[in-house]
Amino acid sequence: EPLWIRPDAPSRCTWQLGRPASESPHHHTAPAKSPKILPDILKKIGDTPMVRINKIGKKFGLKCELLAKCEFFNAGGSVKDRISLRMIEDAERDGTLKPGDTIIEPTSGNTGIGLALAAAVRGYRCIIVMPEKMSSEKVDVLRALGAEIVRTPTNARFDSPESHVGVAWRLKNEIPNSHILDQYRNASNPLAHYDTTADEILQQCDGKLDMLVASVGTGGTITGIARKLKEKCPGCRIIGVDPEGSILAEPEELNQTEQTTYEVEGIGYDFIPTVLDRTVVDKWFKSNDEEAFTFARMLIAQEGLLCGGSAGSTVAVAVKAAQELQEGQRCVVILPDSVRNYMTKFLSDRWMLQKGFLKEEDLTEKKPWWWHLRVQELGLSAPLTVLPTITCGHTIEILREKGFDQAPVVDEAGVILGMVTLGNMLSSLLAGKVQPSDQVGKVIYKQFKQIRLTDTLGRLSHILEMDHFALVVHEQIQYHSTGKSSQRQMVFGVVTAIDLLNFVAAQERDQK
């Protein structure tokens, strides 16, 4: 057995438009009618409502009807409940999964919650491996369901041993009777949507819809739904939504950006999952974080739909894509998950301010006199920076000697690579993860907040409520011999709460 199987392995699926269902090699399930009293909570997966979006479509000038398939009504709160249950049931049916076995899954959280929910009911041990950027709410729900959680670096490539995929496979090879159901490759993922989600949409719309818009992560949702719609409703256009920084969209030119990270969760990847059939997507749109969270908040405030950030991405694209539809036509959007997962993220004004998705003037509360002053007023001194090749031991000596707790790590040209902190280095040394002679590049981390000289002290204040420091950066445009230009970030300084307090105190003292 291989040590790991690539999540982007070539698909062996034989589905073709027009091929009889009787030739399918898979076990198919028909939607079942729910009894009045459910035998367990797993029976509350599927049969989610279709809700008309009344205000947002009109606000953006849509002539067509805009409908939302509300997947956050599933038992675990997301569309991923469907595939989690289906993968477990299919693994039980073919004898792969037996009582007492362990389920391991690399996930952005929602599939993990679905699997942990099913594992709690069915009696399996469950280990979820997820990147650090995923919300604390997801972690809390997983723990409450009895799952064990392993976190991995957000910026690790999918084929790196440190990625959530790599760590999951390492655990599988170490733990007896453990299984990775593997949402990236498992046919049960798109089949769950082909058999149930798509049929529900067709039934709820009486077979009449002209466009379907869905955000894409593993691709199982859009693949399964689109294949069924292509068979039953061939005139329906399928629109895929991919965040900026991901590479799922086609044509490839759409993916060209210097951005590699994004805040919206559960969609987009740096590889093409095996289950994603991009041939059934008629057109791709890219979405960005700001519009995703703005539209998610709009869905909550104006439509009462308590959905997550990827739902915002989907609707932001839908109001663009559906401009081509006329009166009497219908566009369906998939709202994948609930706001429950993001209470401390985009639902929080403070978080939105820190990330730059909300401006101070958007909030009406009274601010102190210094709130709208610029960061450049602080008069920061030149920063202490270190090269990635310097040793951890030497870096600790320098920081202690100069009285700093942290320093930016830059390359020879001064471009920011990340940050090192005294606390992080000492804990890594004590844990045996690094040696004093190791290069400081081994303990770089990139989960820090950046701020510009033109940003306000109010925004800085919000950042420092949650973080010990902020890195002050400025952009530099560099022209190359080819005539092309590129933008790079340079370090201007490091600012802490002490710097802000000293500035405010000094100004008030001078005024007296």
Rank of each mutant, 00 (worst) to 15 (best):
M298N: 12
L501C: 10
V386S: 08
M425V: 12
I463N: 04
I396Y: 07
L363D: 12
L460V: 13
D438M: 12
L276F: 07
I451L: 14
P251R: 15
A296R: 01
D277S: 08
I267G: 04
F271M: 06
N424S: 01
T389Q: 01
L353V: 13
Y269G: 01
P383F: 08
E263R: 04
D510Q: 01
V443F: 14
D438L: 11
T496V: 05
C307F: 06
L305H: 04
Q376V: 06
S461K: 05
E324C: 01
S428R: 04
D467G: 11
E253P: 01
F404K: 03
M490V: 14
S485D: 09
K320W: 01
L363R: 08
N424D: 13
T344N: 01
E365M: 14
P383L: 13
T260S: 12
A318C: 09
K442Y: 10
F293L: 03
R452F: 10
L380S: 10
T385W: 06
G483C: 13
D405V: 01
L426S: 13
E265R: 04
K442I: 13
E327N: 01
V420A: 10
Q489A: 10
N288T: 01
K402P: 14
W351A: 01
T385D: 01
S381F: 15
A506G: 13
A301R: 15
F295Y: 10
L373Q: 01
D277V: 01
I444A: 11
E412H: 15
G418F: 07
L501Y: 11
V264Q: 10
W369M: 15
S437F: 12
N341S: 06
D349S: 09
E361L: 09
L417H: 13
Q489V: 13
Y342N: 05
K283T: 01
T391M: 13
C392G: 07
G403V: 11
L464W: 08
T482Y: 11
L399T: 06
T391F: 12
K355C: 06
A382C: 04
Q406N: 06
T257Y: 08
L457S: 01
L384P: 12
T261F: 15
D282S: 12
L276T: 12
H480N: 09
G403A: 07
E291R: 12
T496I: 11
A292G: 08
A296V: 06
E361H: 04
Q476I: 13
T391H: 13
M352Y: 05
V494P: 01
V280S: 11
M352F: 05
D438F: 13
Y269K: 01
Q256A: 12
S246A: 15
G414D: 08
V473A: 14
K433G: 08
Q376R: 14
I451C: 01
Y262M: 01
T257M: 12
K446P: 09
L460F: 14
V409Y: 08
V280G: 12
S485Y: 10
G432M: 05
D455T: 15
Y269F: 01
T364V: 01
S310V: 03
E361G: 10
T344G: 14
I239L: 05
L457D: 01
A413E: 14
V375T: 03
I398A: 11
A318E: 04
R340F: 01
D467F: 13
S313F: 01
T391D: 01
V339I: 01
R350P: 04
V315D: 01
V386Y: 09
Q354I: 01
L254Y: 08
K283G: 06
K359I: 13
G393R: 11
A301K: 05
F285M: 01
K366W: 08
F295C: 11
L500I: 14
S437Y: 10
I416G: 10
T395S: 11
Q302L: 07
T456G: 11
